[in-house]
Design a binder for these strands. Structure first.
Lengths: 206, 206, 206, 206
DNA sequence: AATGAATGAGCATTCATTCAT
DNA sequence: CATGAATGAATGCTCATTCAT
């Protein structure tokens, strides 16, 4: 059984390609039909393979959807990181963080439709906490790193970093959530501008 | 068959009591075990009734979970409304909206654990939009009503009401979401204070 | 419990009226939606009563459908008998039997659509045989009575009465069956003429 | 998922064998216990397989019973055709049609017990008509073909072909029906002789 | 690496039936 | 007589998973 949750294990090229292919098909199917309607058979059908093969490449459904979520978040994280690093000043970094978050969301709607659906797939408190650690902790850590730079550069005022990180990330996610349910109800660009301006003003020294 | 989608139909006392009882049990089960693990059998077991009785009182699973979601949101809405109306000034109303939102969330954790899970139960774009209309539109409408009072009282500056409403509601929901996954990762009280101060400052004239 | 299969028991007026009303509603529902789709609830809905009431008036579903079948066959039998008795000569009686059979069928399509469906509701050999005795034996007996008159009147030739009765009744039922599945595929009037002429010619002395 | 409604799709050997096996078991179970009592579980039990496997090989219950009916009728049709073609003269062909119909019925009682039950499984007028087209049209077409040969050979008189076909097929089916309910009530051999003689005499020139 | 046959547990839903009121 | 609440068994069907080939 080549499948595993330990990413450090050696995988063949074809193995990795298949996993990626299956994850992308899964995300698309979830976005289109919802998580509960997404069976291995449904994913396999859209891919022209058999469901047995999916079971072969993943350690069960949980492994597949965990991998799918991480794929979404890693891609978004990498996108954001690039743009944040391109900025010198902490205030600009924070603005970039918020605005590129929304940019990426807007350009990858199906991923976030799937993500909202997948939030419900962690049932036990343990699973929920594990998801929190792999999904939110890195985001909050990234924000806190920006804060620290802002403090070092004497650009930012003093505030509770953990709370501020939660609030910023929460605002982004909550707006995305409304947009997932009805894209016409929220203007992502406007929200991005509003939030980035407000938070930058909040953290910067007067 | 007493169940119906027409809410105007008369229901007997026992009928209403049973529906409420089943909805509460469903919410509890969903919070504990997750939506996908929550079967009629599971709900019935915890209630000491048969699953046939649930089918008798609800027009299928969709009716049950829709009713459950509306129950959550209506209770929260009523709680918030009371506190908002107790305030005279628009700024205080907005502060009350944000802070009592978090208060209610904190006091009813299982409801919001269930709610996050239930978000994934709307599969088609039509269902998603319908949920948006019954769930988010009232919230945003409430916020916009507060804004209008603020404008009439010459207390608030000018801003885009729809975007501001989305952003405020989104911030509340997004922080709640992180807290659902790990209550230790977010301090709801701190977040409430941070958000209410920031948003009140944002909308009020200098 | 007033319901019973023994027709000799005293029934109140309202009791009899209700039974008749329910049977007619059942026949209509079966004709429209098929036997398997016809539940007590469905019958009750069309009648504006509750399914509990149906259970009160009939000793279970089997009692209801048995009563329904007998209703169909008794009404048809009475109709045919009237017309057969109006004829003097045996040949005319036989012709009347065949032609009024088809007449009645044509005028009561829903009953025979239901009847074809109900044939499948007798599962065990015992039930099947019991149905044969109450449904077909009287028909064949009626035909044999006509034959006997024909023999007494020296109008008919000699033949095996049981077989001839089966064949005549079978021809009527089989044509009806095709007409139930597709009324456009069979012309009942033509079939009636063809069969009555042929059989009368067959049994009469040259 | 190997099951399909497109009959032109390639099926593996094992797939075809399983379908045939399941159909035969279904027919036997229906004959023994009736259509409504025949569940996937019941069929599977008699076969030593799981009900999931039946769902795997058939697109639902409707697919299974449709396939079962066609199996019955195709086998009977092939049997009759062979014997009809072995006859040269149209009169002999007609006699063969009627007599081998009864022969086949007599030798395959369970199939026809099941068939009578299955008649009730077509609920809507559309389904009924579709069944009429696939089940009765071929029979009537076969008879009409015999009539045409009889006319070409100047052996048969002139008559309405559609009505005559309906009447002959109806007579066969109607006698079979009585025999299904009680095999002792009808002598199939006698009925076959009576009907074949009568109909051949009817259509042939004097 | 991939398939397709098979499993078995679980699901929402239907329904005749019972019974207190 | 009639109702409506409740039952419990059954049903078709779905699906992740296993495994021989």
């Amino acid at each position: 059984m080549p499948t595993t949750t330990k990413p450090e294990e050696r995988k063949t090229f074809i193995e990795e390609a298949r996993r990626k292919q299956i994850i992308d098909a899964a995300l698309q199917t979830i976005a289109e039909q919802g998580y509960t309607q997404t069976s291995f058979a449904e994913i396999a059908k859209g891919l022209g393979i058999t469901k047995g093969l999916i079971a072969y490449h993943f350690n069960g459904k949980h492994d597949l959807i965990t991998s799918a979520i991480h794929t979404i978040l890693n891609r978004q994280g990498a996108y954001i990181k690039d743009h944040v690093e391109a900025q010198e000043k902490a205030g600009d970094k924070l603005r970039a963080y918020i605005e590129t978050s929304f940019e990426y969301i807007e350009q990858n709607r199906p991923h976030f439709v799937a993500l909202v659906d997948l939030w419900g797939s962690f049932t036990s408190p343990e699973e929920k906490q594990a998801f929190s650690e792999t999904a939110y902790d890195p985001c909050r850590a990234h924000l806190k790193k920006i804060f620290r730079i802002g403090h070092q550069q004497r650009e930012f005022t003093k505030f509770d970093e953990q709370s501020m990180a939660s609030v910023i990330q929460g605002a982004i996610d909550g707006v995305m959530l409304q947009w997932v349910f009805d894209p016409k109800a929220v203007d992502l660009g406007e929200a991005a501008k509003e939030l980035s301006e407000m938070f930058v003003k909040r953290v910067k020294k007067p």
